Measured scan of single mutants.
Amino acid sequence: MNLTVNGKPSTVDGAESLNVTELLSALKVAQAEYVTVELNGEVLEREAFDATTVKDGDAVEFLY
């Protein structure tokens, strides 16, 4: 899956889609429990991480 992460191209191997929690784990995001996630310009509530799917071509920003 090809994404733009914090403005840079990134690839997650072996996945066509992941939820936000899985993406944080796959990318080994440090202190993931404290990060705010913006997906395609929309800031996500932490409670929505498990239910929100990240797909090929999406833009993700991790805000600390």
Results as ranks from 00 to 15, higher is better:
A48Q: 12
A30D: 11
V5W: 05
E47M: 09
L3N: 01
Y34R: 10
D58I: 03
G41A: 03
L3Y: 03
G57F: 03
A51H: 14
N6H: 04
Q31K: 11
G14Y: 12
A32S: 11
E45D: 12
E61M: 13
V20R: 00
F62D: 02
L3K: 00
K8W: 10
T53I: 14
R46V: 05
T52E: 03
L39P: 00
K28N: 11
P9C: 11
V5H: 03
A48C: 12
D50A: 10
G14T: 09
N2Y: 11
L23Y: 00
V60W: 03
V29G: 04
S10V: 15
T11E: 06
E38K: 15
A32Y: 10
V35I: 10
E61T: 14
A51F: 14
P9T: 08
F49I: 01
A59W: 13
N6G: 05
M1G: 03
S17F: 12
E16Q: 13
S17G: 08
N19C: 07
K28S: 09
L63H: 14
A59C: 13
Y64W: 12
V20H: 02
G41K: 04
E33N: 10
F49L: 04
L63A: 11
E47C: 12
V35A: 05
L23I: 04
K28E: 06
Y34C: 14
T36R: 10
L18V: 06
E38H: 15
D56C: 06
L27T: 01
L39Y: 04
E38I: 15
G14F: 12
D58Q: 01
N40I: 03
T11W: 15
D56T: 10
G57D: 04
A15Q: 08
V37C: 04
E33P: 09
K55I: 07
V12N: 02
F62G: 00
V12D: 02
L24D: 00
F62K: 02
S10G: 07
F62C: 06
N2S: 12
Q31V: 08
L63W: 15
L18R: 05
E33H: 10
E33R: 08
E61V: 15
L3C: 05
L39H: 03
A30Y: 13
A30H: 12
Q31C: 15
L23Q: 00
L27Q: 01
V43S: 06
G7V: 02
N6Y: 02
V20F: 06
A30F: 13
F49W: 15
E45V: 10
R46G: 04
V60N: 02
A30L: 11
N19V: 05
V12P: 03
T53G: 06
E45S: 13
L24H: 00
E42M: 14
L18C: 10
R46T: 05
Q31A: 12
S17Y: 11
L24A: 02
E16R: 12
V5P: 02
E45K: 13
K28I: 05
V35C: 08
V29L: 08
A48Y: 11
K28R: 12
G7R: 05
E45F: 10
M1C: 06
D13Q: 14
L3S: 01
R46K: 07
P9F: 09
E33A: 12
E33M: 11
L27G: 00
A30Q: 11
A59T: 14
L44A: 02
N40E: 01
D58C: 05
D50C: 08
L39C: 04
D56G: 07
V12Q: 03
K55D: 03
A59E: 12
R46L: 06
A32I: 13
A51V: 13
G41E: 02
Y64P: 07
M1Q: 02
T4S: 07
G41L: 03
T4F: 10
T52K: 06
S10E: 13
L23S: 00
E47F: 10
G41T: 02
E42L: 13
T36G: 06
N40S: 01
L27M: 07
N2M: 12
P9A: 09
T11N: 08
T21H: 08
M1H: 04
K28V: 05
E38G: 07
L18S: 03
G14C: 11
L27R: 00
V35E: 03
E16P: 10
V29P: 05
V37P: 02
D50R: 06
V35L: 12
V54E: 00
V20I: 13
V35Q: 04
G14K: 07
E22W: 06
T21N: 10
V20K: 00
R46A: 06
A32E: 07
K8V: 13
A30P: 14
A59V: 15
N2F: 11
T52G: 01
E22R: 09
V35S: 04
L3F: 07
A32P: 13
L3V: 08
L44V: 15
S25F: 12
E47G: 10
N19F: 07
F62M: 06
V29Y: 06
E45Q: 12
N19K: 06
A48G: 06
L24C: 05
A15E: 07
A51C: 13
S10Y: 15
V37T: 01
T52S: 05
T4H: 06
D56W: 06
K28H: 11
T21Y: 09
V60I: 13
E45H: 12
L39M: 04
L18D: 00
K55W: 07
Y34W: 13
F49R: 01
D56E: 09
V43D: 03
N2T: 14
D50S: 12
G41D: 03
P9D: 06
E42F: 12
E42A: 11
T4M: 13
N2P: 02
D13P: 14
A59L: 10
Y64I: 09
L3E: 00
A51T: 15
T53P: 08
K8H: 10
T52R: 07
F62E: 01
S17A: 09
K28W: 06
V54T: 02
S10N: 09
L27E: 00
Y34S: 09
N19A: 05
E61H: 12
M1K: 03
V29T: 05
K28A: 08
A26P: 00
F49E: 00
A48L: 12
V35Y: 07
V43N: 05
V43I: 12
L27H: 02
V60G: 00
V12W: 09
R46N: 06
V20Q: 00
T11Y: 15
A30T: 11
A48M: 13
G57E: 03
V5Y: 03
V35K: 03
T52L: 05
V43H: 07
P9W: 12
S25A: 14
T11C: 13
L3T: 01
M1D: 01
Y64A: 07
L39W: 04
T53E: 10
E42K: 14
V5T: 01
T36I: 14
T52I: 11
L24S: 01
A30S: 11
T52Y: 06
L44R: 01
Y64L: 08
Q31F: 15
E61R: 15
F62T: 04
G7L: 03
E47Q: 10
Y34V: 11
